[in-house]
Structures are given as C-alpha cells and as structure tokens.
Design a protein around this nucleic acid. Structure first.
Lengths: 217, 217
DNA sequence: TTAAAGTGAACGAACATTCGCTTTTCATCA
DNA sequence: TGATGAAAAGCGAATGTTCGTTCACTTTAA
C-alpha cells in the first residue's frame, strides 16, 4: 500500500497505538515487548518502525493521546450545563465517567504513565500539563462559588483544587488495583466532602435530605 | 567474612536494599540494572545473589520494607494522642510527615510500586494490605466521631475513608512530580474539607477562626 | 583448616532495531 | 480502459547489545 491517503496513515497509526495500549495495560511498558505489539497489531516490526521511531516514542504518543482525550472530556464536562456548574456536578460527571468498566484499560495505562513520568521528561511534560488545566478549572469554580455565596470564604481555592485532583488520582489508582470498587459510593462520599465547603448556615437542607440514605456500610 | 553473625547478614541485606532503593528512585525498577545496584552497594553481583534470588526478589523485598515502615508510622500516629485522635489530627500528622524532603526517595519508589503492583502479584499483595489497615483505621475514627457527635450522621464512614486514602495517594503522586509542592497548604485544605463533615451547627467556631487566614492565592 | 562470604569474567537469553527484499497502490500514458 | 513503472508500505530474518544470572575461584572469619 504505497502512497496511501493521509487518512489511511492516521488510521494505521491509531491502530498500532491501540494495540500497544492493550499490551501495555496487560504487561506494563517494560515487560511488553515489541513482538507482543507486533502480534497484537497484526503487523511486522518494520511496519511499526515506519510510524514510530522507537518504543519510547510509542509510549510518548500514548501519553499524548490520553492527555488529549482527557482534555476533551474535561471541557465537555465543563460546559455541559452552562458556564459554571457546581464543583459537585463536575466531580460527579468526571469521576463517574472514569468508573465505567470500559475505561479499565485506560486506568491501568494511566497508572503506568504516572510512574513513567518520573524517568521520562516527555511523559512528565504530558502528565503535568494534564494536571494543570483541571487544577485551574476547579479553582475557578470554587472561586465562583465563593462569589455567589455557595462556598465559604475561608476555603483556599487553589489548594482545595489540588486536593480534589488528588481524590481523582487516588480513585484511578484504587480502581486499577481493585476493579470491583464501588465507584458510585466513592463519588457520593467525595461529593459529601465538597458540600462541607458550603458556608456554615447553608448546608442544613441537603444534609437533612441525605440523612435517610446515609450511614451505610 | 564467612560464618558471620546474623546481625552482620541482616545489616548487609539492608545495605543492599538501600542501595537498590536509591537506584530505583533514580531510574525506575526496569531501567536500573543490577550493575547499577552492584556499584551503588559497592559489592559484586555474586554477593547480591547470596541475599536475593533475583532482581524481582529485591523489588518485592523493598515493597515489604516500605509496607512495614508505613505500618509503624501509622500506628505511631494512631496512638500518639491517646486512643482516638480526630481525623484531622491524623491527616495532619500523616500527610505532614510524608512531606519532608527526606522522604523524597520514598515517594518516588512508592509511585513505582503502585504501578508495579499491576503486574506483580507479590507487590499487589503488599500494596493492598498496605491500604487496608489505614482504611479500617480512618473509618473507625469517623464512626467514633459520629458517636460522640463531632461528625455528621449522613457521612458514609467506609467510603469517606477511601476518599481520604485517595487524598493521601494523590499527594504522594503530586509531590513526586513536583518536589516543591506546598504540602502545608495542601494539608490545610484537606483538613478544611474534613471539617465540613461536622454536623450542621457545629462548624461556626473553627470556620470563623480561619476566616482571616483563608482565601489565599 | 574449613566452610561460608565474596568476586567478576563469562554465558545465554531476550529484545529493540535494522535492512534487503517483496508487495501494493497510484499516477501516467498508451 | 488497461498496462506500466515508480516509489511507498510492509515484511521478517538477522544483528548487535544489554542485562540478569551463574560458577569456578579467592578471600576471610572462626
């Protein structure tokens, strides 16, 4: 297939990346050999080296893909319900989506990327910029909440956004370790924590509402 | 040095593990070669194979060591102030301790272990049991708080403990990526979130107290 | 003197990468 | 429209290296 369309090349590239991602999810970046990827993609080593200059390059490409996908997801969530949805809704939409079984592979690869970032400046770059945008977004929402009175003034928006990101990261980890984790319940608990950021007088209503449901175990 | 004391053997073993941990923190489990460890430890390959049966075995041993150290830390924190300190104090003590620069290497190795767990049942075993005990402990504290009225009834103790663990994991990750992270500020924000778990009428005092300090950035 | 502790050169398997060759597609022209 | 050539796409055995592991030998403490 020589001189093929750009679309063909793009599709093939994507096909290789998907095959590689499956291998990486299964065995990790270092244990997965090019032979495995070759087999999974149904190609030959030479073909793969037409699209990527090295195995490292494949890892970096996967990192970029994931990053782009997350950006899309985050922005979709962000504008889903108008300009500035509450942080709780943001959390529900974002965390909930990641809980779907189909994202299992994604989570395993993501955990690998987080650790790979420690040695690969290319991956670190992607991981960092993948964290920055959510941090800014959540901090902005929190500040908006402070302006309109739904969030207490004593909340440090920037730092709280970091904690929220940490909750997200921890959830991804725990799910990767324990696929059967009850994500719904985790998200409810996280949202309950966020509700505690409301100003002192404001919380009664929603707290009462949940009283019946609460105290599970 | 033949037929040496058990103490000598134990010390040597620990020495190798420390050298290996430094290599792993620097380059990751897979990039770090046995030659690196050999050089770092000032020994020969053969000597190392007297103490460990494989490289994998060294990784597993490091995982166990870390696990044991965390257990000690957790239990120390747990009983530091009597039987049942508040969750906030628990968070402050535990998160704060991990923020120290000296723990930098620990954090990098831990992140590697989390990803390694996905492929190594031995490591997964350690990671899981390292998570279980804190989960139980925090959940117990939360329930105690519910009994004595400092924590609202609608809080799901088990799930909230998981969220707290997630915050911890996320902090370790973010610090590994960004060693200059302001841990103090992160911890304050996390504690503020926990305070939101107080029953509706209870929070005014501490919230007012912090009003001046708040809204940084 | 003995047996464990330690040495380090050598081994062999695993693996990423290459390269000479084949196949396929498309542009051009009969 | 179909034949033809050129060059890209694909192939896969071969290559060279890296690295974990071993083992015959030396050193050392008891």
């Amino acid at each position: 297939m020589p001189r093929v369309s750009a679309a063909y090349l793009a599709e093939r590239r994507a096909h290789i990346l998907e095959a590689a991602a499956r291998c990486f999810a299964r065995e990790g970046f270092h244990r997965a050999t090019l032979q495995h990827i070759v087999r999974e993609a149904g190609l030959s080593p030479g073909a793969i080296y037409r699209y990527f200059s090295s195995k490292e390059d494949i890892v970096a490409a996967i990192a970029s893909e994931r990053h782009a996908a997350e950006r899309v997801l985050l922005r979709g969530t962000a504008t889903e319900r108008g300009a500035l949805p509450g942080v709780a809704e943001l959390a529900r939409a974002f965390l909930g989506r990641l809980g779907r079984p189909a994202e299992r592979e994604w989570r395993r690869v993501t955990v690998q990327l987080w650790s790979e970032a420690l040695r690969s400046p290319r991956v670190m770059e992607v991981v960092r910029s993948g964290l920055d945008e959510p941090l800014r977004l959540v901090a902005a929402r929190l500040r908006a909440g402070q302006r309109d009175g739904t969030i207490a003034r004593d909340v440090d928006a920037t730092a709280t956004a970091r904690v929220a990101a940490a909750v997200f990261e921890g959830l991804v980890l725990q799910q990767a370790w324990e696929p059967g984790l009850d994500v719904e319940r985790f998200v409810r608990a996280a949202v309950r924590l966020l509700e505690g950021l409301a100003p002192a007088g404001r919380r009664r209503a929603s707290a009462r509402k949940r009283q019946a449901r609460g105290a599970q175990e």
